[in-house]
């Protein structure tokens, strides 16, 4: 038996909304330690990795007797989650050898209980081993700032060049009709931590990435006030949104490299 009771359905709604356009079918791997999801987009350029830890406060109850994989169509899941109120408590439930996943939405005042079942799918997904490495550069910034940068620069071109150095980070785009550059200076003196821009630098990095994917990742902006970008030259960037009281959602994007 698998049963996970999440205090805020809005968290799961936001996660699925941010994933469903790039990753249409995905396996939720459930174990006693929590729920993970790893999926690649159809072109194998972008990957998402979600981790929701069972021992965090976001789960009121969590039970998973046996490791199970729940193959779900995320577009369908998003439709089901739209039936939940943002303040509803949501329970996910499945048997040990599941064919269906049950969603139960309990309204805060206890007056409304909704139950939906969806059929599970057999998804043949290729799991990649992601090495736990130290990155040359880790930039932390307000998530809305990163969203704005990606959105602004995508007006002019398909690729952004991210240039991390000790003063800060530069984002540049050069398209056929024009070019743009946004310079973010390191700023760790502002009052609120979530408004800070910080750059942890072991080595400077200059790397290009497809804006189409970065813009898609920023659909996760509402999950977190901050986002971190981890970069090493000639390796995929990691865009991480922490999820309070649950874990994190990470996106990996393969770089554009001059062949």
């Amino acid at each position: 038996m698998f049963e996970a009771k999440m205090l805020q359905s809005s968290v799961l709604k936001k996660i699925i909304e941010s994933l469903k356009d790039l990753f249409s079918d995905a396996n939720f791997d459930c174990s006693s330690s929590g729920i993970t999801l790893q999926d690649m987009d159809s072109s194998h350029v972008a990957l998402c990795y979600l981790k929701l830890r069972s021992d965090e406060e976001g789960f009121e109850d969590y039970r998973c007797d046996r490791n199970i994989t729940l193959g779900v169509n995320l577009v369908l899941m998003s439709k089901i989650l739209k039936c939940a109120g943002n303040d509803d408590v949501i329970t996910l439930r499945a048997e040990d050898e599941p064919n269906i996943l049950t969603f139960i939405f309990d309204s805060k005042n206890g007056e409304r209980v909704s139950k939906y079942d969806i059929k599970l799918m057999e998804i043949d997904s290729e799991l990649l081993g992601i090495p736990d490495t130290e990155y040359s550069c880790v930039v932390k910034m307000p998530s809305h700032e990163f969203q704005r940068i990606c959105s602004n620069l995508s007006q002019l071109g398909d690729s952004v060049t991210v240039d991390c150095h000790k003063e800060g980070v530069d984002f540049k785009v050069a398209g056929e009709q024009g070019s743009g550059a946004i310079k973010l200076k390191q700023n760790t003196t502002v009052d609120k931590e979530e408004d800070q821009v910080s750059v942890e630098l072991n080595e400077a990095v200059t790397q290009s990435f497809a804006l189409k994917f970065l813009c898609a990742f920023t659909k996760a902006t509402s999950l977190s006030d901050t986002v971190s970008l981890s970069l090493t030259q000639d390796t995929p960037i990691v865009v991480e949104y922490p999820i309070a009281q649950h874990g994190y959602l990470r996106f990996y994007l393969a770089p554009k490299i001059e062949e």
Binding site: H44, G129, A254
Partner: peptide
């Protein structure tokens, strides 16, 4: 022109 790489180049199958 810069070429888009694939994740399979960086991460191995588990």
């Amino acid at each position: 022109i810069k070429g888009q790489t694939s994740l399979n180049r960086f991460f191995s199958k588990q």
